[in-house]
Nucleic acid binder design. Structure first.
Lengths: 338, 338
DNA sequence: TTGAAAGCGCTAACAG
DNA sequence: CTGTTAGCGCTTTCAA
């Protein structure tokens, strides 16, 4: 490995000067700088950023913790985070928790150990246990896609209550009265708040809330499929005419279940999703869904994080940003058949 | 920040002993170890892995460079890489090149600077320019999803020629004679080799190869859609009855184009994809496609990389592993209509 | 404008 | 079993 000292020797200057020249410091003679840089090039020098980090106390890297990178929502979030971070000179560690709280905590600790400058956490654990433990340490942290009021720190989240309201309201206006809710992991903010929005829409129209139409599982295709089948069987005497799914992947599972049970979408079962991932717009799918502006969210999260990193020494920040979802109407839900 | 020295002071031992105790070295007294660990816990100590890396010369991190993390194929690859690496005690830096060769090179350099222990590269640049530059440095490297013979280093790739053959052959046996090929980025191994397989299948059946049915673009939905429309228009006098798409995303674009041009899939246009990403099996899509065992590929790549890291000092390895694709038959292609 | 030297937090000889 | 000490490669005072 070529070090700064090798360059110093060959260039006949002290290695402090080499450091200055390579970092383009103003206090170094122009001729010296060029000579040193020339030597560095000849030797094929690569700065060792581990050594640099040890003294500067910053690694120029951040951690991104997501529950499931194969979920297009998080993949797209990751893409935008990576892009914005990279443009700002930061690298990103990808941590996939697979919806496992313990894994989440161990990643958090690992990222701290690795001296990452900050963390963006799309959180798994919705009791906030991990976060609360972690908040005592003074590591810059931005939460996204998760709890909001329960914990005091920087957050950028979508207004899930509003989103749930939009979805349910749309179905109500189409004439649906029995709307099932097939949610993801039961305790997550996404699941809870979207249900809350659903309830509010129902309340506004004076439609009674029916516990039998509510079901939870995970944010997976298989879960959506199984829960829906179960729901349809349990309510066979008075079946739902529409389903509000916890996210687009679940919605696809709902569609699968409908097909398997001989129900046509949207004629016999209307379906609304959440996220508006890419495939929702595909011709064969045409899923009506609630769109989350995730590129914005990624960008905002990174900017918020970096500003927190730069303004270090500042105690834990507590800026909360809410982005608004919007309804995207496609073919997957029609009016009630008479 | 709590350091090893703080613990030493409080525990009344030398800081070398603290280091030993914390690392569970055998040569330390059991009682001392426990006492030290207790103090560490009380103080909320976190080892600084930057400092450790500086002396041990390993960071326990690897870089994963992919062209597009929102492509489910790479997302799933990333997931398996992350999982296997994590189990082996390695963290992964996610680098998204967005199909940009310059970005790829700058990531490669950055990863070296950061002292990552190795790199898994799902490559963008298929002339191998970046790789060749990089191969001189002795950083463990595994290539995947890219050139194979052109460059000497560890690689794990799918047999794209065989995959292309499987796809085309299937269509031929269904009675299709005019099969269009809607590829991705023209110079990539995936595009070139899959086309080669297609040609071989045609040759075996003594069917002339028609240049007019071949088209390139990028591995994106939009590209698949546009190229297909163009292809169908250009060949309106003698249109293709089937399309072999460069990957599943393109295949979806092909389906979209078919729909827009009033063609039914599979009745009027059969479609075969490549990858077998999750959505290919969705009920509404049911895409016949060539499956790549990407979990295996991710796992193999990581294991290969780690073994190369461990057996360091060894000159550049040159193990090439090929995994075999398989055809998954679904609804998107039917027999030729008479 | 440059050099000498200290030190970031840790591991790893080497002595004892 | 434990302490002393010398670095890892770099940035950053402090003097010159």
């Amino acid at each position: 490995m070529v070090t700064i000292k090798d360059i110093a020797k060959k260039a006949q200057v002290s290695y402090a000067t080499v450091s200055r020249a390579l970092n383009n410091r103003p206090e170094v003679n122009e001729a010296t700088r060029e000579m040193v840089q020339q030597v560095a090039r000849e030797l094929g020098y690569r700065p060792n950023s581990v050594a640099r980090s040890l003294v500067t106390k910053q690694t120029k890297s951040i951690g991104l913790v997501v529950p499931d990178i194969t979920n297009p929502f998080f993949a797209e979030l990751a893409q935008s985070v990576e892009e914005v971070a990279s443009a700002a000179g930061y690298n990103v560690f990808l941590c996939n928790t697979n919806w496992d709280e313990d894994k989440e905590l161990s990643y958090l600790n690992l990222l701290e150990s690795r001296q990452t400058d900050g963390i963006i956490l799309a959180q798994t654990d919705d009791h906030g246990n991990n976060i609360k433990k972690f908040l005592e340490r003074n590591l810059p942290l931005v939460l996204t896609h998760s709890l909001f009021d329960k914990v005091d720190c920087n957050q950028v989240v979508v207004d899930d209550i509003r989103g749930g309201f939009l979805a349910a309201n749309h179905l109500l206006w189409l004439g649906h009265h029995r709307i099932a809710y097939v949610g993801g992991n039961e305790t997550t903010k996404a699941t809870v708040d979207r249900l809350e929005g659903y309830k509010r829409a129902l309340a506004e129209q004076d439609i009674a809330f029916d516990e039998n139409l509510i079901s939870y599982g995970s944010f997976k295709w298989q879960s959506g499929r199984e829960r829906t089948k179960q729901l349809l069987r349990q309510n066979s005497h008075n079946p739902p005419t529409a389903v509000f799914a916890g996210n687009d992947i679940i919605a696809l599972g709902v569609m699968q279940a409908a097909e398997e049970m001989g129900l046509k979408v949207p004629e016999q079962l209307a379906v609304v999703g959440f996220d508006d991932v890419e495939f929702a717009s595909y011709p064969k799918i045409q899923l009506t869904t609630v769109s989350q502006p995730r590129n914005n969210m990624g960008e905002m999260a990174v900017k918020m994080l970096i500003s927190q990193i730069k303004g270090n020494g500042v105690a834990r920040e507590n800026k909360k940003m809410t982005v608004q979802p919007s309804l995207v109407i496609r073919r997957s839900c029609g009016a009630v058949q008479i």
